[in-house]
Nucleic acid binder design. Sequence first.
DNA 1: TTTCAAGGCCAA
DNA 2: TTGGCCTTGAAA
Length: 434
Amino acid sequence: MINFFNEEIFHIIKNIMTYRKVKCKNEYSTDKADCNANFAATLEPVTGKMLAAAAPMAPQSLNVGRAKIASSSASSAASSTFIQDCCPVCGDKVSGYHYGLLTCESCKGFFKRTVQNKKVYQCSADQNCPIDKTCRKRCPHCRFQKCLKVGMKIEAVREDRMRGGRNKFGSMYKRDRARRMQAYQRIGLDGSSGTNGSSLQFTSNNGLPHQHVVRHQDQLVTSSSPLGTEKSMCSADKLSPYRCSSLDDQMLLLQSVWAELHVLDFTYYRLQGKLPDTVSFKTGHRLKATSVALLALTEGRSEWDKLCNQLNAIGFDRYDYVAIKYLTLLNPNYSKLRNKALVIEGRQRIREAWLEYRRSMVQDGNTSEIPNCMEKMRSLGLRGEQYLYYKMLSGHVSKGLLTEMLVNYGSRMQQDTAPVDSDIRPKLIVNGEL
DNA sequence: TTTCAAGGCCAA
DNA sequence: TTGGCCTTGAAA
């Protein structure tokens, strides 16, 4: 979704920025050079980077779809499977089990040096520094604290510095592998399709990364029809729980939540430390990524910052991202759905698999914060959509797919007869639960 | 014999 | 100091 609307979002945001500059020169930070320079640049390098960022192990695929399971028994297969996981400390690529859990090589080395050399670090801030791949070097104190928090074990660092061999955690790793394989299989729901590990993947098809979400190979995100790529729709059949016989249902779901998914995508990229400062477009224009992320809703910026910090603190990873994407999309509460039972079934299975994953992957299995985060994401997406809708009404949006979505938003709003500023979508979360 | 999680090394 | 790659050696 992130790139699905990029071009059109760009146009509207550009219009809005121009409009705002007339109304209030200082209200919106607009770098004219940013907007006009580099006309030769294309959209692909940026979206390609994003794609690569999400799919470090598979250039032609993006790791946000379904789990692929190569083998449920062989430990070697399991290891190659988990190699595509994210380090719970910094989000970098996992290299294996280190000191009690799967981490990257970098955090392994950092933890080892810290314990071996009995280092004591000081935090120059509030002892709450975000730790990700890009900033893990900034605050060793908070990095080490996070290592401990996620479950790295000091006792696994050998006092005698003996090399080689195995330690007492061997059986724990084995059990953890088994749990993971089980969880992956449940998330994947199809153990037979995997060939290269368990990364959550969907193909980007045709080397067109900017349409990656639209080309989601196996699920309802597939909104290919509007773009004339019906072929990819067929592959949804391969995964029965996500199979949705009605194109209308798929479109209904997608039209209803595209803005939330857009915010979710940008949020995930940001958590990965891979959100660029600016987003370039085929026209050569560039916009601040935060503006594009929030659909030009500048007043949502501080909320988004807090949301990202919150997600970062609970170790929100790629699997959470995928699960939340599905859960956002598979909302059975739309009265017009033809096959509601299918959506309910798919949602239920995703939810169970995800909760199991959370319990097995994260030290304290914490999920309590996530509904709250989803609500915030939903609020940001909805407000952004609403904002763009009014911009469209005032003629600031050129015709295209985005306008189709916004027109749909308008018709839903009218049907609902709800006040303009209220949330017209069915609630996803009841009593604090998904 | 193979596996893989320890520690070690060293360029950046 | 970091982090990627190498070596080691007990367990499977």
